[in-house]
Amino acid sequence: MQIELTINGKLKSLEIHPGESLLETLRKNGYTGVKYGCGTGDCGACVVLLNEKPVNSCQVLTAAVDGESVTTVEGIGTMDKPHPIQEELVKAGAVQCGYCTPGVVLSAYALLQTNPHPTEDEIKTALDGHLCRCTGYVKIIEGVKNAAEKV
């Protein structure tokens, strides 16, 4: 079936299977910053912004979001010009294997868009859907706090 999605601000016309997940659609179209983790919505590696809100893309069927807007980590920053959230996560030592990082960046981005000065509890709630097996969470929270002062 044919659908349209706005991905990172650009309107795309895509051919999809009716049972395809948003995660699958994005990855096969080159948005590999979206990671496959658990496939059950538990780990947060596949988080993208759907209409500016973080969602687990493995739990969304692409056909259901025909005409809607998706933001992936590729739409937030680039290698040459990283977003301040990405810079602060690196500075805080919050990135090791990096598998959880794109999802964390997007959840933090969505939080700071609506709440520029979050408390630590608000940061923890915003990131409660992300599992990190490398650095733990102290450094990630520190990175988001520092980013809040710059965004």
């Binding site: 538990d42 947060g44 973080p54 969602v55 739990q59 999802g103 990131l127 859907g129």
Partner: peptide, 12 residues
Amino acid sequence: LGQAASNPLRNL
């Protein structure tokens, strides 16, 4: 409801 599942899932 604010304690159920996780933030990205609560949006769905």
